[in-house]
Design a protein around this nucleic acid. Structure first.
Lengths: 240, 240
DNA sequence: TAGCTGTTTTCTGTATACGGTTTAACGGGC
DNA sequence: GCCCGTTAAACCGTATACAGAAAACAGCTA
């Protein structure tokens, strides 16, 4: 038996999964500090499993180690741009591949997630929207045969997820996301890789635009902060 | 001060880098088993730093944990296909982005790596070819501003590297790689993102073809092994 | 000789302990 | 009242020890 990771049911594994879930669902305050000894006490173990879990989360980008505990990373706008760039490159193709392998069960999951998102949008419930979003993505990601590709996407999405909680507070963003999910859903049900690919491209572009425009208005409300560096121009510029 | 990983100069970090280098340069036998206590003795530390380094390597895919020590993963053809798929998606764009930021020093590194590759090809020195290959890629990868993108590529390349040692034994493959590097080199020196993008696309396709065709002949020489499953058809098929 | 079974070895996962370093709090001087 | 040096606490990295599981091995049986 070969395993890529520590024993699937070890203590550190359990703690890792638990903590990762919290971070994924944005259930930790931005300034909360994870400290191994505290976590160890909480789970009734020694420091080591907690420490290993934290180290792994930090290694995967879910947390950053400070000299005083581990915290969820505070992503800059450039960081978000970077994450979006990678997602733009990977997700359309991955979704297209998945479109060929959608079975009935996945179909149902996708539909349920879409309905849930619709409900959340109507009720202006950002938290619920995120959960529906996660469920939708996980449904089709599970059907991507290339596990390396799927896992990479999962990680990148998770990293940006933290930020999206804020942006999904905006109604216009929720509408954009909901429309994108609906279009994707239809394409998935038709098992049409090309349509899925194209709609994912459109979805990512729309999500990115929505994010940065809401951020713009957010920043506009505040007193003009220190001039943001304008040295990053790799993105959104194509190859021209 | 924020750090994404354990203290940059900790024992586990040192061991991690050392071992990763060995794996990257294919300096470990395919059946070699890394055992924490042995490594600890070798480096004059206790088990813990060695263990952490191994765990991290396993987490990043450089090693796989077995119930009896850690080993370099034995990649199946499907695994290789998966790696190539992700690389096809990421590397052209990343290289194009890097093309805009090539400075004089990088130019020299690229040139030196290309010359080294050329020399290795003439001398039929596969090991040297790999090293030149690594140097070339690291030179332009360092100029990719999106660190997430660059790191992801680095990891995926490393995973496939193990296998390439074998394929670079073939002269035709060496020629393909050398030609690809030369074309890329020229495009980089011109700072032409579009040309770099296109040549990287071509390079990846050529490398992939060369790999699988040499593997085909390899397999043809052997007695027909157990029928390989033909269920994987996501790749090399585009979206049609 | 092949297969089964009990024992030993090997390796992992976890617990606990210690030392060093950074941070934050506190108190004295300006 | 504010700044700066000192001190105490927090936290990390590492070392050592132990228990349990899996593989290897040897001996036994057929």
């Amino acid at each position: 038996m070969i395993r890529h990771l520590p024993r699937r049911d070890s203590l550190s594994e359990r703690i890792y999964l638990e903590l990762r879930g919290k971070v994924q669902r944005s259930e930790v305050a931005a300034d909360f500090r994870f400290v191994d000894v505290d976590i160890a006490n909480e789970y009734g173990t020694s420091r080591m499993p907690a420490r290993e879990a934290l180290l792994r989360l930090a290694n995967e980008g879910y947390l950053v180690g400070t000299t005083r505990g581990f915290m969820v990373p505070r992503l800059s706008l450039d960081d978000i741009r970077d994450v979006f760039e990678v997602r733009r490159l990977l997700e359309p193709r991955a979704a297209a591949n998945a479109a060929r392998h959608i079975d009935h069960a996945t179909e149902q999951e996708l539909t349920r997630a879409l309905q849930e998102a619709s409900l959340a949008a109507r009720r202006n419930d950002a938290g619920r929207m995120i959960l529906a979003n996660i469920a939708f993505r996980q449904a089709w990601l599970a059907k991507v045969r290339n596990r390396r590709l799927a896992d990479t996407i999962g990680r990148f999405v998770d990293h940006a997820q933290t930020v999206r909680l804020r942006t999904l507070q905006t109604e216009s963003t929720r509408t954009v996301v909901l429309n994108g999910l609906a279009a994707l859903h239809a394409a998935f049900l038709r098992r049409d890789p090309i349509a899925v690919n194209d709609r994912m491209v459109a979805f990512m572009a729309a999500a990115e635009d929505a994010f940065f425009s809401t951020r713009e208005t957010e920043l506009a409300d505040k007193p003009p902060s220190v001039a943001r560096s304008a040295t990053r121009y790799d993105h959104n510029e194509g190859l021209s």
